[in-house]
Design a protein around this nucleic acid. Structure first.
Lengths: 140, 140
DNA sequence: TCTTGCACCTCTAGTCGCTAGAGGATGTAG
DNA sequence: CTACATCCTCTAGCGACTAGAGGTGCAAGA
């Protein structure tokens, strides 16, 4: 098996070099073997793990959730209810976030459209911010 | 004008007490006058400013953007192009974030639906995370 | 062989927007 | 007068990195 440097691992996984070292520090990634000159030498399995982590981070999973997902991956004979629960919880979060962002979008659009590009004292943007009652959405 | 305590200001503005002190520390809020016993005494104008800040934070504006928006509000005779630009930039951010979250939602739904509640080695959640090529959306 | 220059090493501190807690002073109600 | 809530300042912590200092390793060209 070919070992690769941390820089190469970064290139291939899409995770930055300091972030890889950070993941090692918090125990997401095992400590790799070292070259004679004390440089980290990664194996293909580390690369897989890194890619898994990157993908999960992109999906917005927190490090603690990823820790659980990784330990599930390491024990493939367990029931996958935990993985399912984690993904479902994340899905609910994402759905909520989308709803809230849609409301914000509507409010921002109202602000921007209402701006007549005149002076600040007639500006809808400032006005809406100053007076919450003008919001169409009062959920926040 | 009636002065109020920081706790009352927190209650009326919806901004927590330590957060109000924090805003003062970073210069978003002026230093209020003090009572004999060195306790902060806020005026109605401070309350307006706090509400403005809270509302802007809820809309996701960063503190630096709010600093600019506040200085615009303080100088109402200026043209409002800056406020407009800030709001527009925020709108673009929100739209991008919504798009990206929609893609994540689709991917998470696929993961959750595919999970047959069996063992981890057949779990779609883990599988998709491990193999990025299975994603329907390759933007990330 | 030497040197250039990049990639690597460890360690600490900074980012953002708060939040938590220690340890003490003040204000108010009974 | 005594509780007790609220206030004060100060420092440290959160998550997930990112930046920088100060030093070592290594491969390639002159």
């Amino acid at each position: 098996m070919k070992k690769i440097t941390i820089g190469e691992a970064a290139r291939q996984s899409g995770v930055k070099v300091p972030t890889i070292r950070y993941y090692e520090g918090i125990g997401l990634l095992r400590e790799p073997s070292r070259s004679e000159g004390n440089q980290r030498a990664y194996e293909p399995s580390d690369l897989h793990r890194l890619t898994f982590i990157r993908h999960a981070r992109e999906l917005g999973f927190e490090v603690e959730a990823i820790r659980t997902l990784l330990s599930l991956q390491d024990n493939p004979l367990q029931p996958c209810a935990s993985a399912d629960a984690i993904a479902k919880a994340r899905l609910v979060e994402v759905e909520q976030r989308i709803r809230s962002l849609m409301a914000l979008k509507a409010e921002l659009e109202m602000m921007v459209e209402g701006c007549g590009h005149g002076r600040v004292d007639q500006c809808r943007v400032i006005e809406v911010l100053a007076d919450h009652a003008q919001c169409t959405h009062h959920g926040h």
